[in-house]
Simulated assay, not measured.
Amino acid sequence: MQKFFLAIASTTTTFTLFLTLRTFAILSPQPPALQVAQQPNCKDPQTQLEINTCAGIEYRNADQKLNQVYQKLLLRLPASRKQKLILAQRAWITFRDANCEFERSQFEGGTMAPAAKAGCLANLTKTRTAQIEKYLEASTL
């Protein structure tokens, strides 16, 4: 009989706790659906997380510019040269990714690895953008 009362008391306590938490959750103000994280200070990053984040941002920006210049060049080339550029660009991407993976491997397992890879990707992408900009300038002459 004592076990029966203990089981009922336990169930009642659990149910009461559940109702209290549910009521609290319903009455509590809900956080906004979307919260914007603080932007990193890429002019003077202070933590490894900021360095990694800023390196990633730098790469994304460089990649976006490369794609814009690449698309402009594609529009100006005759069909016979477009295919050659596409082939060259695919080979370059394969090289870039493999080369930057190699650079990242120097820091395997460390917190610097993401920044090393993103920095490499950004640098090679900027160099490739400059090459394509020269092709673009030559195509307008």
Rank of each mutant, 00 (worst) to 15 (best):
S105G: 04
N61G: 13
L141P: 08
G119V: 03
F4Q: 10
Q35G: 05
L75E: 15
R128L: 07
Q106E: 14
F15A: 15
L27C: 13
Q131W: 09
N52L: 00
R76Y: 06
E137Y: 03
C54F: 03
E103S: 08
L87E: 12
L74V: 08
K126Q: 11
T125W: 07
K3H: 08
S139T: 05
K117P: 11
A130S: 12
R128Y: 06
T20W: 04
Q131E: 14
A91V: 13
S80G: 10
S80K: 13
I8E: 00
K65H: 12
R90F: 06
T94F: 09
I26Q: 14
Q38P: 03
N99M: 10
Y59N: 08
L49D: 08
G119P: 11
A37E: 11
L136Q: 06
S80M: 09
F15T: 13
Q39K: 13
Q71C: 08
F95R: 11
E50N: 03
W92D: 05
Q71L: 14
Y135C: 01
E58A: 15
F107Y: 12
T111G: 08
T125C: 05
L136E: 03
A118C: 02
L124P: 07
T94C: 04
K84Q: 13
M112D: 09
E108G: 01
K84S: 14
A37W: 07
E103V: 03
K134R: 10
N67K: 03
P31G: 02
N61R: 15
Y135T: 00
D44K: 14
Q39C: 04
E137A: 09
I93Q: 15
